[in-house]
Amino acid sequence: MNIFRFLGDLSHLTSILILIHKIQTSRSCRGISYKTQLLYVIVFVSRYLDLVWTYVSLYNSLMKLFFISSSSYILYLIKIRFRPTLDPSIDTFSLPYLIIPAAILSLIFNYADEKAWLSEVLWSFSIYLESVAILPQLFLLQRTGEAETITTHYLFALGAYRALYIPNWIYRYATESFVDPIAIISGLIQTALYADFFYIYFTKVIRGQKFELPA
């Protein structure tokens, strides 16, 4: 564990707490993509099911439990508790376009061997799906053209988590020759998806202006 990975994980955890706080205090899931949140549940369940048969550390297990339970709770908040505030007409990104390619890629590029096939395919599927899971949310943002500040803080913390994993990989390569090509390539793509968002966040939201996309 190095500082980059730890801060990245903390940032990820914070982003989820911000999202729950936003939904509960505003009693609304306005501006939040249900589809992105559904994808995160699929990502966490398919990746962290290994919780049952793999033990890395207490930290690792607790985080996995947190990500599975909190993402499921968010889905409950959106789909049941505050369902009337959901506007499906702007959350229109088609999920099969993301899920099917991720599934195909995971069948081709994975770390499966004769001992572990399903768990390895599920793991790479979750990595590929995570790298694009934010797209319905960014698409929704693009459609509405603006966002509540709290939503942009959520997105920033989520993007920062991905960005912090990059120095983590560089550090791990330098200190332990650790290289995980599937995670690294997917992670770089995922971080790149945030580039536009980061630009507007730094030039507007940080200076106290409203998050608005250029017309």
């Binding site: 994980d9 290994d50 890395v56 690792n60 996995k64 990500f67 770390y111 793991w123 994993y165």
Partner: peptide, 10 residues
């Protein structure tokens, strides 16, 4: 050298 992939990251 290629060794078994360790999944200790989240």
């Amino acid at each position: 050298e290629q060794h078994k992939h360790v999944k200790d990251e989240l």
